[in-house]
Design a binder for these strands. Structure first.
Length: 494
RNA sequence: GCUCCCAUCGUCUAGGGGUCUAGGACACAGGAUUUUCAAUCCUGCGACACGAGUUCAAAUCUCGUUGGGAGCACCA
């Protein structure tokens, strides 16, 4: 049996978006599931738009997501290297096969200008025909070629498509798809500057890298008949193809900035976990028989199969991603959440927070608020008040709980009493504090809430937060009293 | 315009002739719990695009219509 070899072949012309990551993930899962090899190849033959920065972003994202490649950038000694197409071009790899195709009559030089080709296409469209190159340079004589060269014209190389019969794609996901050969024109495989085009470079590399399965987005379906004909012309075995359905944005077209982020990096910045992204994205276009939602990476690998990939496009749903991230964080223990948070702070250049904040206090605060954390970005707003010397009083909270006509006298009473009594509180555990607060309520004829709420706002500045007595216990006696006094001075001293 | 792909709750999906008064998950609504916000638990809302055909029987098969998407570059 041949070893499975798959590849992810992004072009570094912008941020890797969700769709790109999905393609990478499915290839990776397939390779892992089949014990095959996952190869990363950078298709940078678009000299105008490819950038090194974009390449680095892709590599960063792959690393962050832990979609580790068995071969690719960094494996320069591999027998399949290099993995950058421009380096492969410089080695003359594509030229070799272009020459072969020309010599065997499957490709030819074309001297038509871009303008000419454009006109051809427009004419065809006006006549309701399939837009295609009409093949006018197909049978140029040697003399004509010499003449064009003498005029200083530069040639592109076109592949001679068969124009009779059909080309059949047996797609692993979609089944049999037929293409009418008469509709497909001869296409450019090498630009006039000697750089191969996608359809050609892709075939040559997939062959040379011994790729067995091509998993890619279904936007490539219509490229496939061209590629199949190149394989045939070169006498190469055709790999298996599997075309994944597209991931759409909210508006039904593509992922847009307005709805969810285009770039995966944005999710990292917000504090989504790597495993959340992978789990969620796996669910877009793949499912199990029992519709399981939450998977560990291992489970994903174990269960993945091309057969269970869907054919219809799916829409990215940020709300579900958020829910899933909460689930993932809840499934961690507090120490792991702490580590994740620290890594995230470093990534977002906020590591000074770790220096300012007491680590032990932070770890305990995370335990208190663990269930509420949806994304790592939530943590500072959830527990930040523990660490700030100056309490940030939320105006609404203060108005409602401390200063409204209905509450102000009670709040003042509760705080003043507490400032005094807590000084003598021997046991500052949460249960003892609760007992204290309930007794105070009973003694003064108040409802428990009338005692609890003012204390909460006084010491945290807000109405929402961890369970009150755990919060007080964690803050400690001195700090609680200090904060209550601050509140008294601020709101009740005239 | 031409070609190809696709069509189950708002969203992701299960289901692939009878077990479907269509299952799960997110979201949404209500309730329980709670000192607050969450989390959790319970309940509810909610879909087979339409039309023909095949069949005893269609969400499921076929054709058509409509709708959506992609490709048609010296982009990938």
């Amino acid at each position: 049996m041949v070893d499975i070899r798959v590849r992810f072949a992004p072009s570094p012309t912008g941020d890797l978006h969700i769709g790109g990551v999905r393609t990478a993930l499915f290839n990776w899962l397939f390779a892992k599931n089949k014990n095959g090899k996952f190869i990363l190849r950078i298709e940078n033959t678009d000299e105008l738009r490819s950038t090194e920065a974009s390449t680095n972003v892709i590599l960063d994202i792959m690393n962050w997501l832990k979609l580790n490649w068995d071969e690719g950038p960094g494996n320069e000694l591999s027998k399949y290297a290099p993995y950058y197409q421009m380096e492969r071009r410089d080695k003359g790899i594509y030229q070799t096969y272009v020459d072969k195709l020309i010599n065997s009559g499957f490709a030819y030089r074309c001297y038509c200008s871009i303008k000419e080709v454009d006109e051809m296409r427009k004419n065809a469209q006006n006549n309701k025909l399939s837009p295609r190159y009409d093949g006018r340079c197909k049978n140029l004589t040697l003399i004509q070629i010499k003449q064009k060269e003498a005029e200083g014209k530069k040639a592109v190389i076109r592949f001679k498509m068969s124009n009779v019969g059909i080309t059949v794609l047996n797609d692993l996901i979609r089944g049999r798809v037929e293409f009418d050969n008469s509709l497909l024109g001869d296409f450019v495989i090498m630009k006039s500057n000697g750089t191969p085009t996608y359809n050609f470079a892709c075939v040559v590399d997939d062959y040379l890298m011994e790729i067995t399965h091509v998993l890619r987005g279904d936007d490539h379906i219509s490229n496939t008949p061209r590629q199949i004909q190149i394989y045939d012309a070169l006498g190469w075995r055709i790999p298996e193809f599997a075309h994944l359905s597209m991931i759409l944005g909210h508006d039904g077209t593509r992922l847009s900035k307005r709805y969810g982020h285009t770039s995966v990096l944005e999710y990292r910045k917000e504090g989504y976990l790597q495993e959340t992204l992978l789990n969620y994205i796996a669910l877009l276009g793949w499912s199990t028989e029992n519709s399981q939602q939450i998977f560990t990476i291992e489970e994903l690998i174990e269960n993945f199969s091309i057969e269970r990939c869907g054919v219809s496009p799916s829409t990215f749903d940020p709300a579900k991603l958020l829910w899933l991230n909460g689930e993932k964080i809840r499934s961690k223990n507090p120490d792991q959440v702490y580590e994740l948070f620290v890594d995230w702070l470093k990534y977002t250049n906020n590591e000074k927070l770790i220096e300012e904040w007491d680590v032990n206090l932070l770890k305990k605060a995370i335990i208190l608020e663990h269930d509420k954390i949806k994304i790592l970005k939530d943590i500072p707003s959830l527990v930040g008040f523990f660490f700030k010397k100056d309490i940030e009083y939320n105006e609404k909270a203060v108005q409602k709980v401390l200063l409204s006509d209905k509450s102000k006298n009670i709040a003042k009473l509760v705080l003043v009493e507490s400032a005094l009594r807590l000084l003598n509180q021997q046991d500052f555990s949460s249960s003892a504090l609760e007992q204290y607060a309930r007794e105070l309520a009973l003694e003064k004829g108040l409802k428990t809430g009338q005692v609890f709420h003012p204390i909460r706002v006084a010491i945290s500045g807000k109405t929402q937060g961890p369970s009150l007595f755990h919060m007080m216990e964690l803050m400690g006696q001195n700090e609680v009293i200090r904060r209550i006094n601050i509140a008294i001075n601020k709101f009740f001293k005239k």
